[in-house]
Amino acid sequence: MTNSTTVTEFLLEGFGISWELRLLNSMLFLLMYLFTLFGNLLIVTVTTFDHNLHTPMYFFLRNLSMLDMCYISVTVPNACVASLTNSRTISIVGCATQVFLVIYFAIVEMMFLTIMARDRYVAICHPLYYPVIMNYQFCVRMTLASLISGLIYSGVHTGNTFQLSFCQSNVIHQFFCDVPSLLKLSCSDTSSNEILILVSAIVVCGGCFIFIAISYICIFSTVLKFPTGERTKAFSTCVPHILVVSVFLTSIAYVCLKPSVTSETNQSIIPSVLYTIVPPLLNPIIYSLRNKQVKGAVRKVMFKKIYSRKL
């Protein structure tokens, strides 16, 4: 192409123009990051050391927490350092790696949430067959299938994005590399990429949503037949998962419905915060506040640590 320069690196958006604003936003995001790590690490710890929580439900909750720690670590630490040092440059390889990991962790989280919906369905609608259906081998196979599917999904989208030519502006109006922002910088025809994103989002995210919705329709129809005491207990195990699914699916849907953010201000950062930072931040809060077993396990683990230190 004439009158064009091939892009060899990208410039990410900072958390503000002035130093004071960048410092304030970076500290805020850093606190959210540390709180997310602490909350999810606490869930991983209690579900690992408390043998009463060695069930399929908490097996996937532990996997979800580990996934969330990796998910938020892909974007926030690098963005905070870049904003504080005003070093916005990221190489094409680094950008591709970030795109791959963000898509990978997002899609695996979606699949974990779908499997957790099946776990609740089997536990409530078919309790006698629960140990048979949701056995350890099934949980491991579903986890591996989710991880492998995520690799394929993210690999396809990352490869399809970085086979494009980037010869226009190299400024990404985002605090990390994402596919919609990169498509706007390409001088190639991106129509096939946009169709692939739309179709895959409808098939994967839509399919997961339908599966989860059907599972909870069956769960609610069964729970309504329970006595009041058992009904409350059954709802208490489902509410945290419903809240987590709602937050994650709502944020993903918002981003998919508004992929072409034209603003070059920090307003373009808000949609991405919804699906990269908010779900990992809220997951431990929702599960710890709404789940009596998790709260009891936390108190038990903390008591053991305090008692061991006194000895």
Rank of each mutant, 00 (worst) to 15 (best):
208 C>S: 13
139 C>Y: 01
128 L>P: 00
152 I>K: 04
216 Y>V: 03
175 F>H: 14
166 F>P: 04
202 I>N: 08
163 Q>T: 14
121 Y>H: 12
214 I>W: 07
193 N>P: 12
215 S>M: 06
113 L>E: 13
184 K>W: 00
134 M>V: 01
214 I>L: 14
125 C>L: 02
123 A>I: 05
117 A>L: 05
131 P>H: 01
158 T>V: 02
116 M>W: 00
205 C>H: 09
155 G>V: 09
143 T>I: 13
221 S>F: 12
188 S>M: 03
143 T>W: 15
145 A>R: 03
217 I>C: 10
162 F>T: 06
175 F>C: 09
143 T>N: 14
196 L>G: 02
222 T>P: 05
139 C>W: 01
185 L>T: 08
196 L>Q: 13
173 H>G: 01
188 S>P: 04
141 R>A: 06
117 A>K: 04
173 H>V: 10
192 S>E: 02
165 S>R: 13
142 M>V: 00
163 Q>K: 15
138 F>A: 13
209 F>H: 10
125 C>W: 02
166 F>D: 08
114 T>P: 01
223 V>T: 04
158 T>M: 12
177 C>L: 06
120 R>W: 04
165 S>L: 04
175 F>E: 07
211 F>V: 11
181 S>W: 00
119 D>T: 15
117 A>F: 02
193 N>V: 10
168 Q>T: 10
132 V>R: 09
